[in-house]
Amino acid sequence: MTDPTSSAVLRGAVDLSSLRNRPQPPAGAEAPPAAAAAGAVASVPSLIVDVTDATFGDVLELSRTVPVVVDLWAEWCGPCKQLSPVLEKVVTELAGRVVLAKVDVDANPQLAQGFRAQSIPMVVALVAGQPVPLFTGAVPEAQVREVFAQLLQLAAQNGVTGTVQTGEPVAEPEEPAIPPLHAEAFEAIEAGDYARAVTAYERALAENPRDEEARSGLGQVRLLERVQGVDLQAARAAAAASPRDVAAQFTVADLDLAGGHVEDAFIRLLDLFAALPDDERAPVRERLLELFGLVGDADPRVLQARRSLANLMF
Rank of each mutant, 00 (worst) to 15 (best):
Q157R: 15
G159Y: 11
A142Y: 02
L100G: 10
A240H: 07
L289C: 02
G162D: 03
D231R: 00
V66C: 06
A234L: 10
A191L: 02
A247V: 12
D271V: 04
A128R: 13
E174N: 12
R20N: 14
A34L: 15
A239C: 02
A241W: 13
Q24Y: 11
G229C: 04
R301T: 10
R281E: 02
T163F: 01
D53C: 14
R203Q: 13
V70P: 03
Q233A: 14
A171P: 00
D278K: 00
P209Q: 01
L151Y: 05
A128W: 15
G137A: 10
S308C: 08
E174Y: 08
E174K: 15
E290L: 10
A8H: 08
A38K: 12
E263I: 04
R145E: 11
D193E: 05
L294M: 14
R97V: 07
L181M: 03
R306V: 15
V284Y: 07
P243L: 07
A101S: 13
D279H: 10
L218M: 09
D256W: 07
T136Y: 04
A40M: 00
P33D: 09
Q143M: 13
S242N: 15
P169V: 06
S308L: 13
A177Y: 08
F148L: 08
L257H: 09
E184N: 04
N21T: 13
A214Y: 09
G129Q: 08
A305D: 02
E93N: 08
Q130I: 04
A282M: 01
A258D: 11
L312I: 11
F266L: 12
L87K: 05
D211K: 01
E30L: 13
L255E: 01
A240P: 05
L111A: 14
L111P: 12
D278S: 03
A31Y: 05
E168L: 11
S63E: 09
A247R: 12
A185K: 00
V9F: 04
L205Q: 04
W73R: 11
Q228H: 14
A34V: 15
A237Y: 07
A237S: 11
V147R: 00
D245A: 04
Q130F: 04
P121V: 06
I178H: 02
P179H: 05
V66A: 08
D193C: 00
V44G: 10
L181Q: 06
A253M: 05
A305Y: 06
R64E: 11
A149G: 03
A177K: 01
G39I: 04
R196S: 15
E141I: 08
L309I: 06
L16M: 11
L312N: 02
Q220G: 15
D256P: 02
R236L: 13
L269T: 05
L19Q: 14
K89V: 07
D297T: 07
E75P: 08
A191V: 03
R203T: 10
T55F: 06
S63V: 05
A241M: 11
A239M: 05
R244C: 03
E184A: 14
S216G: 14
A128D: 12
L62N: 07
S119L: 12
L134Q: 07
V41H: 03
F273H: 15
E187A: 15
Q118F: 15
A298V: 08
S119G: 09
T163W: 01
L269Y: 08
